[in-house]
């Protein structure tokens, strides 16, 4: 019989308390009736009411969602292409350089990505006149660039671990290589592409530093709005907004994880049934 690891369990409890107490505290204080953010003044939902009547928040959310949708979709297309290139095409010119360029943005500090993108956009406007103003276009371009490499990482690792029997069988039966890619490889890695899109979408929705550098006047995304308010200190309406965001994202991620897990299990079951039928 193994001894119960009391020390490990107590550190785990401490760790989870450390993870979740600040968030719970923020949620509790979002229902605070007092104007002072940290002094309890009775239960109230007035901050939620004032939040929903705030036009600025709605406009910022809409802009954020628009940028996240477009940039995640573009990032998924480009990132999947890069993942396929790195995992399936063994040799092409500049492959090593390409794989370096795919990993470098992952460790690049946001500040540097932010100022270098802004310098590029200012110089582009100067030299070729496009994009003429900074705002939606420049934010989206920057978001595509940093989120596509996350998609590449996910797709690439899925492709490397995927079984290649079916692809080889299709090749032997005379399919053209791009048909194999389109009809077999892409459906097989579809869950990875989907989770790549989801990741790109959430990091775009959450990004603040690079966005703050590449935005222009009048283009405030939701994180930028929160950033500008939070710099001034803790306020109850940000507590309310934060609570809504944390709950929506949290529930969304749990449901997405559950659905993906179920789909995976279903696929495993189907595969096993298919094998058994063949025997």
């Amino acid at each position: 019989m193994r001894r119960r690891p009391i020390f490990l369990i107590s550190v785990l409890c401490f760790g989870f308390a450390f993870f979740y107490i600040p968030i719970l505290s923020m949620i509790v204080y979002s229902f605070n009736g007092s104007r002072l953010a940290t002094v309890w003044g009775g239960f109230s939902t007035k901050w939620y009411v004032s939040l929903f009547s705030n036009r600025q928040v709605g406009a910022a959310l809409l802009l954020s969602l628009k940028i996240a949708l477009i940039s995640a979709t573009m990032a998924t297309i480009l990132g999947t292409m890069a993942g396929i290139a790195l995992a399936r095409f063994r040799r092409f010119k500049g492959r090593l350089f390409f794989s370096g360029m795919v990993t470098a943005p992952l460790i690049m500090p946001d500040v540097i990505t932010g100022i270098s993108s802004l310098m590029l956009f200012i110089l582009m406007a100067e030299w070729i006149g496009w994009p003429a103003t900074r705002g939606f276009t420049t934010i989206t371009l920057a978001h595509i660039t940093f989120s596509m490499v996350y998609v590449t990482t996910i797709v690439q690792s899925r492709l490397i671990s995927a079984e290649r029997d079916i692809e080889e069988a299709a090749m032997d039966l005379g399919s053209k290589p791009w048909q194999v890619l389109w009809d077999i490889t892409l459906p097989v890695i579809f869950p990875a592409i989907l989770s790549g899109w989801l990741l790109a979408f959430t990091i775009s929705l959450d990004e603040v530093v690079i966005t703050s550098f590449t935005t222009g006047p009048g283009n405030t995304t939701l994180p930028l709005l929160i950033w500008s308010k939070v710099k001034l200190g803790v306020t109850p309406d940000i507590n309310a907004l934060a609570t809504i965001i944390v709950l929506v994202v949290g529930i969304g991620v749990v449901i997405a994880g559950w659905l993906m897990n179920r789909a995976e299990k279903q696929r495993d079951r189907d595969a096993r049934l298919a094998y058994r039928a063949n025997e």
Partner: peptide, 24 residues
């Protein structure tokens, strides 16, 4: 889970915890 929720808001949650008049 915290990976997916906003980084900015996780920092903000600690601002509320550390302030001079907070319960913590």
């Amino acid at each position: 889970l915290p990976f997916w929720t906003s980084f900015l808001l996780r920092v903000y949650a600690w601002m509320g915890m550390m302030g001079k008049s907070s319960w913590f």
